[in-house]
Design a protein around this nucleic acid. Structure first.
Length: 221
DNA sequence: ACCCAGGGTCATA
DNA sequence: TATGACCATGGG
């Protein structure tokens, strides 16, 4: 596990929150919609995922049973705007079948977080980040999601090397901050929504601080 | 004409 | 354990 400076992690969060405000995440009305979005957004811009979800909603297919029995071609066509539609159609159906086998949301909610993570990861097409997105935003478990921006930003700030294994980094951050679903929710949301912007303001050199990265944003207001 | 986005799997060494 | 190929759309 990686050791991280808890105080620094918190101050970075405070700066981000003061600069950008609450993000009110994840966009999605139900836990199931959130989980579908998590699969569809893999390496894909959210604007494209919105169209795919809108297509599913329009024909009332945003439902595990309906998706599970939908023919491949039909499902692929519906989610086409989100890209990788052939793979994602399979992944969505794999996930929905597993979800139904497990008895649905209420049944899954009874599992402890580790068991639930293990189950999610057993689905072909659900990897670390997707599973953790589901755990945090659909099941409201205190899980810190690691994405490419998280590595980039924390490594530029000199807190990590950036090439640590996924769980090593996740556990390091969770240990430093302490289990806190609301905090993890907001932290990851800020990083994802503004990661591009933040990276522009954080130079590649080591030892830089976050002051510069939020100055432009504060002055705008 | 590029580049990238809220990744994951599979084959290979 | 660690790389590389592959998947595919839409916006800048």
């Amino acid at each position: 596990m990686v050791r991280l400076p808890a105080r620094r992690l918190r101050s970075v969060y405070q700066r981000l929150y003061r600069s950008y405000g609450g993000q009110d995440w994840w966009p999605g009305e139900t836990p199931f919609e959130i989980m579908v979005g998590a699969v569809l957004t893999q390496n894909t811009a959210w604007s494209n995922v919105e169209r795919a979800i809108a297509n599913l909603k329009a024909e009332r297919f945003l439902d595990p049973r309906r998706i599970a029995r939908l023919p491949h071609g039909r499902l692929a066509r519906l989610i086409k705007p989100s890209g990788y539609f052939n793979i994602k159609a399979k992944r969505l159906r794999n996930f929905c079948r597993w979800y139904l086998e497990q008895g649905g949301y209420d049944e899954l909610s009874r599992c402890d977080t580790e068991t639930l993570r293990h189950g999610l990861l057993s689905v072909n097409g659900v990897g670390h980040e997707t599973a953790d997105d589901m755990l945090l935003y659909a099941f409201e478990r205190p899980v810190f999601v690691i994405d490419a921006y998280t590595r980039r930003i924390f490594s530029r700030l000199g807190m990590v090397r950036g090439d640590e294994l996924y769980d090593a980094l996740r556990l390091g951050i969770e240990h430093a901050l302490g289990a806190d679903t609301v905090l993890f929710n907001e932290y990851h949301a800020l990083i994802v929504c503004h990661g591009k912007d933040i990276c522009k303001k954080v130079p590649r050199c080591a030892g830089c601080s976050l002051k510069r990265m939020c100055r432009a944003e504060s002055q705008k207001k």
